[in-house]
């Protein structure tokens, strides 16, 4: 398996702890359904071993503008 962690177009993915997930949902006033999805079969999910229901924290960088993005792992 090829290590794809440090490709220039792949941002860093991280699995969020359950406590952090609850904090996130509460602070934004949303449910898991409102969060963008990522498939379990996605190469980044495979690498982290993320299972459906996990929330991934993605450290995005859009031309210098750094921010966090979240995706919930779904089956597929």
């Amino acid at each position: 398996m090829v290590n794809k962690s440090d490709h220039e177009i792949i941002p860093v993915h991280e699995i969020l702890k359950l406590k952090e997930v609850n904090e996130l949902l509460e602070s934004k006033g949303i449910t898991l359904e409102n969060i963008p999805k990522i498939f379990e079969s996605d190469p980044q999910c495979q690498k982290l071993g993320a299972k459906p229901g996990h929330v991934l924290k993605i450290q995005r960088n859009d031309g210098g503008n750094r921010y966090l993005y979240y995706r919930v792992v779904v089956e597929g």
Binding site: K4, H7, I9, I10, P11, H13, I38, F39, D42, P43, Q44, C45, I58, R60, Y69, R71
Partner: peptide, 14 residues
């Protein structure tokens, strides 16, 4: 192809 190899976040950037 990027989605298949690098994932959806990379595909979005691409």
């Amino acid at each position: 192809a990027i989605n298949r190899l690098f994932g959806i976040e990379a595909a979005r950037n691409a």
